[in-house]
C-alpha cells in the first residue's frame, strides 16, 4: 500500500477531517478534528497494519492559536511505509494512546516531563527524566534559559542547606 492508497482509504473513513501531505519525503496526516484523533490512530493500527509505534513528539508553538502539537510516528512493517499523525490543540490536554500501543507509556511520560503535555487517562503520568521536584517544563519556548533559580530550592532532603548565588 502506498501513501496515496492509504490517503484514499482514510479519506473515505474520515471525510473532511484529514489533511494528508508529503513534505521532505515524509508522509503527514494532519487530523483537523481533534475529536477524531484516536479513531484515526485505531483505524491505522487495525486496518492499515501500522502496528509498530516509533515515537511521540510534542512541539510548542506559543505564537499560534493552537499552542501544542502532537506528532505520532508510526511504521507499517508489512507495507514498508512510515506516516506521521499530527494533532494540534489550544491547551496542553490530549487523550492518551497507551490503550492502543502499550509502548506509548514511556514516550508520553517523557513529553509530559519535558513539554508539559497532560495525557488524559495515562496510567502513570509522572516525571521520568527530571526529578520530581523540578518546576516547569524545559522544552517549552517560554522556559527561561538564564537567571533560573536553583532547581532544588526547597531543600527536599532536609539537609539544612541554603541556596544562594
Amino acid at each position: 500500500m502506498t501513501f496515496e492508497q492509504l490517503t484514499a482509504k482514510l479519506e473515505a473513513l474520515f471525510p473532511e477531517k484529514l489533511n494528508c501531505y508529503t513534505e521532505f519525503k515524509c508522509n503527514f496526516i494532519k487530523v483537523k478534528d481533534a475529536a477524531a484523533y484516536k479513531a484515526v490512530l485505531t483505524a491505522l493500527r487495525d486496518e492499515a497494519s501500522f502496528k509498530y509505534i516509533v515515537d511521540v513528539v510534542a512541539v510548542h508553538w506559543p505564537k499560534k492559536r493552537e499552542k501544542f502539537e502532537l506528532t505520532i510516528n508510526l511504521f507499517s512493517i508489512q507495507n514498508k511505509l512510515r506516516v506521521f499523525v499530527k494533532v494540534a490543540g489550544e491547551d496542553n490536554k490530549f487523550p492518551t494512546i497507551t490503550d492502543i500501543w502499550a509502548g506509548a507509556n514511556l514516550m508520553e511520560r517523557e513529553q509530559y516531563d519535558l513539554m508539559g503535555i497532560v495525557f488524559e487517562g495515562h496510567p502513570n503520568l509522572k516525571r521520568v527524566l527530571l526529578p520530581e521536584f523540578f518546576e516547569g517544563h524545559p522544552l517549552r519556548k517560554d522556559f527561561p534559559l538564564k537567571e533560573r533559580s536553583w532547581f532544588n530550592n526547597a531543600d527536599e532532603q532536609g539537609l539544612g542547606l541554603k541556596f544562594s548565588r
Partner: peptide, 26 residues
C-alpha cells in the same frame, strides 16, 4: 506482537521473529 506494540526495535525485534531492518526497509 509485543515488540511492535512496545516499539522495541533492532535486535529485540529481530529476535522475536519480526523481519525488519531499516537498512533494507527504508
Amino acid at each position: 506482537e509485543d515488540v511492535q506494540v512496545y516499539g522495541t526495535s533492532g535486535p529485540l525485534m529481530r529476535g522475536s521473529g519480526v523481519d525488519f531492518d531499516l537498512r533494507r526497509d527504508e
